[in-house]
Design a protein around this nucleic acid. Structure first.
Lengths: 241, 241
DNA sequence: CGTCTGATTGAACGGGTTCAAGCAGCGTGG
DNA sequence: CCACGCTGCTTGAACCCGTTCAATCAGACG
């Protein structure tokens, strides 16, 4: 049976038994499709369902009074959607699909049952959640202490590392459905400047962002420029006892 | 018996029984004192103990290769320290006491036992943790989409709201042990500019930051300037069923 | 009494924004 | 079929917020 992005991701960190794999598989029952533009969750609204994203990208963002928006993070295939919102019965941000997405709806009860059945699964999911939080912190650091070029490089490298983990990218590059406006709202820049930064990086022979595809022309050079240390994505230490 | 900052905070959101209060009290047994400068946790080091902060302030930060640092968040009395590090056996940031602090060491086993004994306590603590995460997100939004004045106003207002909850501040102001360098490393600004921003806000009659004390000269004006909406601190919805 | 930390202010510089204009591709309707 | 409008990309020029460099000052502390 084909493995889902989620299982690919988790298998990179915990050796899962066939029983655990099957439990995971069963969580992917209720497939649902969402379309671009229509938010899954609106700021302030309390939401009842969690999802496992299987195809497409999604972004979580906050709107400001003055109309500007700040994207907090992206979810790619294999990531959980709204897990925290469900556990805490609250959502303080909006979630928007980028293009069409396919997601498996997960009932809290099913998830908790799966955890009870296979505790190692709970550990693996907990790891995934904590990795997401580490990424938010790294994002915050970037906004506070990196210049535009470094931010861009770091962000695209991080995405690349995440996509590689679920088989959607290589060291050479990956497909990327984001517009330059998405990048601007993520990196705290203006769309105009995003364009200039991309040009600069391209002319420096570091990376090319064009026609929905990211190409790393000089991976090591980019890593050096952005001071990218994937440790926070890899921390493969012992979790929960 | 005097209530600790933590109980004050939790009582604001969950009506705790005397049994639960006693369990909470017992978690505060092992008092430990830490001194300024000496980090509690170093970046990358894995840590075994969690703490409840009872006196003094602490900041969590990340150091960059180029020597600059970005403060991610602060902990004030009543906040947990290193709870996530303990659960996940990993720490990707450093933690530094600001001045002398008093903290109660909490063993994971004790905490889990307390949760098992009084589930409502677990709910309350979960709420506190999720509030901390919401604050990190709000911080990120500030770095990405607010100018220096708004960032400063928002940050000091948020701190004020948190301190008020544990009885350490009022609408008029609060004692604040931070230096302008702390503010700079928090807000992603240079120390020089922090000084100028503080002067501007003072001369605009909005707030005064001097001699370790924050005074809100025009609370409502500041709220308007910073677009401060304490909703993310207050979300008092039903948690976990 | 010298040294250190933290606060303060000035002047020059620069990274990033804003405003403005132009262009390409693409779906829609007359 | 072409015109139109829309979204996304691109580039130039002027401006401004915040940085950097540099100097000064006050208080604390050994």
């Amino acid at each position: 049976m084909d493995s889902t992005p989620l299982t690919r991701k988790l298998k990179a960190f915990v050796a899962l038994t066939s029983v655990e794999l099957e439990v995971l598989e069963r969580l992917h029952q209720r497939r649902r499709v969402f379309h671009a533009g229509r938010d899954l969750v609106h700021q302030g609204q309390s939401e009842q369902a969690a999802y496992i994203l299987s195809e497409g990208w999604v972004c979580s963002y906050k709107l400001q009074m003055d109309g500007s928006r700040q994207i907090v993070d992206f979810q790619i295939p294999g990531d959980f959607l709204g897990l925290r919102s469900v556990l805490l019965h609250t959502s303080d941000h909006s979630v928007e699909p980028i293009g069409e997405i396919v997601a498996a709806e997960v009932l809290v009860s099913d998830l908790l049952a799966a955890f009870a059945q296979t505790p190692r699964l709970a550990t693996a999911v907990l790891w995934a959640v904590s990795r997401d939080e580490a990424m938010v912190v790294e994002h915050l650091v970037g906004l506070g202490r990196r210049d535009a070029d470094q931010r861009m490089g770091h962000f695209l490298l991080e995405l690349g590392a995440r996509l590689k983990l679920v088989g959607l990218g290589t060291r050479a590059g990956y497909d990327c459905p984001l517009t330059q406006y998405h990048l601007a709202d993520t990196l705290g820049l203006s769309a105009v400047h995003v364009n200039r930064v991309l040009r600069r990086l391209r002319e420096a022979g570091l990376l090319t962002f064009r026609d929905g595809h990211v190409t790393f022309d000089d991976y090591d050079g980019l890593v050096a420029l952005a001071d990218f240390d994937p440790a926070y994505l890899d921390h493969t230490g012992p979790l929960l006892k």
